[in-house]
Design a protein around this nucleic acid. Structure first.
Length: 227
DNA sequence: GCATTAACCACAG
DNA sequence: CTGTGGTTAATGC
C-alpha cells in the first residue's frame, strides 16, 4: 500500500525523531516511505535476509526473535509505536533477527539512505534516535539480568506483568502459544503450563486458555522481585 | 542423604 | 497445541 502524500505529516504516530523534521524533510520522508499491513503470524522481516529499509511499527504488536542452535529465542516483544530493526539494518548487510506480527499490525518501510541523510543533517533527529536506542539497550541489559538470575516463577511473573503493562489492562489475551511463551522466558512449554496453572490455583490469576486476568498484582510483583 | 527445581519424554485430549 | 504425570540430572541444605 503506497503512502498518499501528506500522510507522514498528518500521522498521529510520528516518532519523536520524525517530529524534529522540517516540512521539506517530512515531505522527503513521505516520498520514500511505504506503509504495509500485516496479519497475525506474518513475517515482517527474516533473519539472514538482506536488510534494506528502516522499519517503523505504527500499529500492533511484534515479536523479535532469533533462530538459535536449539530453539527459536524470542528476544523481545515490541509494541507500537517503535522502530524495528535499527541495529540490524544500520551497519549490517543482513538481518540478525526476524520480526513477526503477533496481531494485526501496520508498519512503515523507510528508505535507508534518506533516513541516514536525516541523521547527518539534522542533529535533533539523530539525538532523538540515539535516545531511543539507549533506552533499548538499557532494557536489554535488564532483561538479560532477569533472564539469567531469576527462577522460572519470577520470569513468568515478569512476563505477565509486562503484558499487563503493554495491554494496559488486567485482563488480556496472551499473544503467545505456550511454546512461544517458553521461548520468551527461557523455559519449556511444560513449565509454562505448570506455573500458569499454579498461579491460577493460588488465586493470583484467572486463566482460561490464552485469556489471563491478573487478580493479585502485588503478589506477582513480589514473586518477580524475589526471583 | 534428602528435597527441590526444572528439563525431557510420552501420552491423551 | 495443551496439560499432566513419570523420570532424571543438577543443586542446595
Amino acid at each position: 500500500m503506497k503512502n498518499k502524500s501528506g500522510q507522514c505529516n498528518n500521522c498521529q504516530l510520528k516518532s519523536s525523531s520524525v517530529r524534529t523534521l522540517n516540512p521539506a524533510e517530512t515531505e522527503r520522508l513521505e516520498k520514500n516511505c511505504t506503509e504495509v499491513h500485516f496479519k497475525k503470524n506474518d513475517i515482517i522481516f527474516k533473519q539472514n535476509a538482506f536488510s534494506s529499509n528502516i522499519i517503523y511499527l505504527n500499529n500492533g504488536l511484534v515479536k523479535i526473535h532469533i533462530e538459535g542452535p536449539q530453539n527459536e529465542q524470542i528476544i523481545k516483544v515490541v509494541k507500537a509505536p517503535s522502530y524495528l530493526g535499527i541495529p540490524t539494518t544500520f551497519n549490517e548487510k543482513i538481518n540478525h533477527y526476524s520480526a513477526t506480527a503477533l496481531e494485526q499490525t501496520s508498519v512503515c518501510f523507510i528508505d535507508i539512505d534518506v533516513f541516514k541523510d536525516f541523521i547527518y543533517k539534522n542533529g535533533q533527529f539523530a539525538y532523538e534516535l540515539i535516545t531511543e536506542l539507549c533506552k533499548n539497550e538499557l532494557n536489554s541489559f535488564h532483561r538479560c539480568v532477569n533472564r539469567t538470575q531469576k527462577h522460572i516463577h519470577g520470569r513468568i511473573a515478569d512476563a505477565l506483568l509486562f503484558f499487563k503493562n503493554t495491554f494496559e489492562h488486567n485482563e488480556f489475551i496472551l499473544p503467545f502459544t505456550r511454546l512461544e511463551f517458553g521461548n520468551f522466558v527461557d523455559t519449556s512449554r511444560e513449565s509454562v503450563s505448570r506455573i500458569l496453572t499454579e498461579f491460577k490455583n493460588d488465586g493470583i490469576i484467572n486463566l482460561n486458555g490464552k485469556k489471563v486476568e491478573i487478580l493479585n498484582e502485588k503478589l506477582l510483583e513480589t514473586i518477580s522481585n524475589k526471583g
